[in-house]
């Protein structure tokens, strides 16, 4: 399966025959809607017992050109959730602006609720609860639902946002939440998730550690981070559109921590010597 964002949303080769790329070479003006232009590669994430770890590299490619090398593809939402974007970067930026607006509206609403409380009002019974949902603001599951509706609406108008998105945070029952939505509005959850090439290369590794929700609920934060770093390394080895600088986000009940200048360490390219069958070398 071809997992490049350019191939997402296209008629499948095995169903419709080989892809005819001739239209890409015309001088007609093209829009991001018709095909992704500047793209980010995989986003990966795994749940652990008190939250979710997510990672994505800092590269935005223009076709095969490594165009921008400091792009932040993990975005916090209301400091309770993280959204990770794969696919078109301009659509990501549009969504980011949109989500910022949504977060501001939500923050105002929450403000209104606390300011408007009558002194002896029954409100704020549960606001002492420190869990991220009890403040009445959108949690990760609400946000994911919203994004799903947004993406599905755009696909219905044949004007898709060319992204696959991971949303991490907590659900209404204050359990770790991780879900995905793509450019067609297909949404699903799993103890670990990966977009693009990550679905082929990282997901099998992550599933070794968190095959089920129960497994994920036993993982510690350190273990989860270690698995994710390992996966980022594998992706850097094998995905030609990837970078060794990446962002790592950890969502817990205490909030969101994103570090945006992680570097892949202890790389070993010794395996490359043994690879035969590609390029110019003969046997």
């Amino acid at each position: 399966m071809d997992h490049r964002p350019q191939a997402w949303g296209r008629p499948r080769d095995d169903v419709y025959g080989p892809y005819d790329a001739s239209y890409l070479h015309t001088s007609m003006p093209k829009t991001a809607t018709q095909s992704p232009i500047v793209t980010g590669t995989s986003v990966i994430a795994i749940k652990f017992k008190d939250g979710v770890v997510m990672a994505a590299d800092n590269l935005a490619s223009y076709g095969s050109l490594a165009r921008f090398t400091d792009v932040k593809r993990l975005r916090p939402f209301l400091s309770t959730s993280v959204v990770g974007f794969g696919g078109d970067v301009s659509d990501m930026q549009f969504l980011d602006r949109h989500l910022t607006e949504l977060a501001i509206d939500e923050a105002y609403e929450a403000e209104g609720c606390s300011a408007g409380d009558v002194s002896s009002s029954p409100s704020s019974t549960s606001s002492s609860d420190s869990s991220p949902n009890k403040n009445g603001q959108l949690n990760a599951s609400n946000l994911h639902k919203y994004l799903t509706k947004l993406m599905y609406r755009r696909r219905n108008s044949f004007d898709p946002l060319w992204n696959q998105i991971l949303v991490a945070g907590f659900d209404s029952a204050s359990q770790p939440f991780l879900a995905s939505v793509d450019l067609r509005g297909t949404a699903f959850t799993s103890p670990s998730l990966a977009t693009g090439y990550g679905a082929m290369l990282a997901q099998p590794i992550m599933r070794k550690y968190a095959a089920t929700e129960e497994d994920a609920a036993r993982l510690t934060r350190e273990e989860a981070v270690k698995v994710v770093r390992e996966c980022m390394k594998v992706l850097f080895y094998r995905d030609a559109r990837s970078l060794d600088r990446f962002s790592l986000a950890v969502v817990t009940k205490d909030g969101v921590e994103i570090s945006e200048d992680e570097v892949l360490e202890e790389q070993s390219w010794a395996f490359a010597e043994r690879i035969r069958g590609y390029g110019t070398q003969t046997v």
Binding site: E109, G112, C113, G116, G136, L138, S141, N142, K145, Y146, K149, S172
Partner: peptide
């Protein structure tokens, strides 16, 4: 409820 999967805040 359809767009956010939660009940609407009463004040809203």
């Amino acid at each position: 409820r359809l767009t956010y999967g939660r009940s609407m805040p009463v004040r809203t």
